[in-house]
Design a binder for these strands. Structure first.
Ligand SMILES: [Zn+2]
Ligand SMILES: [Zn+2]
Ligand SMILES: [Zn+2]
Ligand SMILES: [Zn+2]
Lengths: 159, 159
DNA sequence: TTGATAAACGTCATATCATAACATATCAAT
DNA sequence: ATTGATATGTTATGATATGACGTTTATCAA
């Protein structure tokens, strides 16, 4: 599957499909896809950029779905833990996963101008880092890869 | 150069050498290696783990070198900007660079048990991510690579 | 159906991380 | 000595995240 995020596409199906896939997965796995969790995923899917927890909370609050930080953080924890969303450490923010349900190690391309985020794949088992870790006896459990730069749209139209 | 951080070594020279190298570099480049900046670097070099800004600030405060957050953050900004220290995004914390003055893209091995941090090299120009970015027309300026897991010391002595 | 157990939610309070703003001091170069 | 740039001291506030605890809802076995 290819990274998306810098191209035009039909976004309504993008959201609907994403929610449907996760709903199905949750049903299969016996996970509770509650209204708040579903709504937060929809909010994240609505944009190909990352959003802060408080930004999400503002929307939830306006819709009467919760007004206190733990509401947003708990929903986000659920989504991240089950692989439906990822945290962008560089930004202290969250983004919907583009391959929910698939076991993968994401890498992110973050545009520092327009804040769009594209999810790509990293290959944690290949490359020099894996070799270094192996040589040292360090057991890697999780890898964060976040590339910051300028996306194609922003390259063409410099500010 | 090889990553250190999980092995025993003479730490006093580790600190002295690190400070000396940075001092020399600053002199050459016309950078002001002020007392607070020097002390923060020493504090970071003192441990092969990352430290939060407020943890550093506590030490500075006890020594009369500054008591307000901006003092620590400004010193850290200087060190990070000039490549003498790195920020660990995953931990919102900082660590001294093991190759100051050398142009490099660091990768980190973070032990989730003992919080030790080892700096290794990543190879941003190789691998799948670079290719993906190139294909998309995304210009990468900076890459964060942080691997979380269990270091050799903690593997041997499970809690 | 009902009762026990676990999971999720609502809410308040607080912890932790980070920066804006502005006045003062020091440095570097003429 | 003057001056412009850089660094510091300080106050205040903003932004991100979690602990705790009581209530509600879902799950499931008896
Ligand atoms: Zn993903
Ligand atoms: Zn962009
Ligand atoms: Zn380094
Ligand atoms: Zn360890």
């Amino acid at each position: 599957m290819d990274p998306i995020g810098f191209e035009q596409h039909d976004h309504s199906t993008c959201i609907a499909d994403g929610v449907a896939r996760v709903a199905e997965y949750c049903k299969r796995e016996g996970l509770q896809f509650t209204p708040v969790r579903k709504r937060v995923l929809e909010i994240l899917l609505h944009q190909h950029r990352s959003m802060g927890a408080y930004e999400i909370l503002d929307i939830l609050r306006a819709e009467g779905l919760g007004s206190q930080p733990p509401v947003a953080y708990r929903a986000l924890d659920f989504l991240v833990k089950n692989g439906f969303a990822h945290k962008i450490e560089r930004l202290n923010a969250f983004t919907a996963c583009t391959h929910p349900g698939e076991n993968h190690t994401p890498a992110f391309l973050i545009c520092r101008k327009c804040n769009s985020v594209a999810e790509a794949f990293s290959e944690p088992d290949k490359g020099r880092l894996a070799k270094t870790a192996h040589d040292l006896g360090f057991r890697i459990e999780r890898v964060v890869v976040e590339a910051e730069g300028i996306c194609p749209n922003c390259t063409e139209a410099p500010a």
